[in-house]
């Protein structure tokens, strides 16, 4: 492509689960404690399946 550079190709919609599979950390449990951020937690299911 000449005008667009794809840096990260994802399909977040396809990761939809019926409820969470529990293999992620609680987003407020450690570093923040006052203002959550979900995008920087890790999905361990993805990591384990790699």
């Amino acid at each position: 492509m000449k005008h667009i550079k794809i840096l990260s190709r994802n399909r977040l919609q396809d990761t939809m689960l019926t409820g969470t599979c529990e293999k992620c950390s609680a987003s407020c449990q450690s570093a923040c404690k006052t203002s959550i951020t979900v995008g920087n937690t890790i999905c361990y299911t993805k990591v384990e399946n790699k």
Binding site: S8, G19, C24, V38
Partner: peptide, 23 residues
Amino acid sequence: FHHFEVDMEEGPCFSKRITGCGA
């Protein structure tokens, strides 16, 4: 820096992202 660490590839699933912290 905690808030700069956004993961594009291995971040949480859609369900987690729409519900937030789980409190």
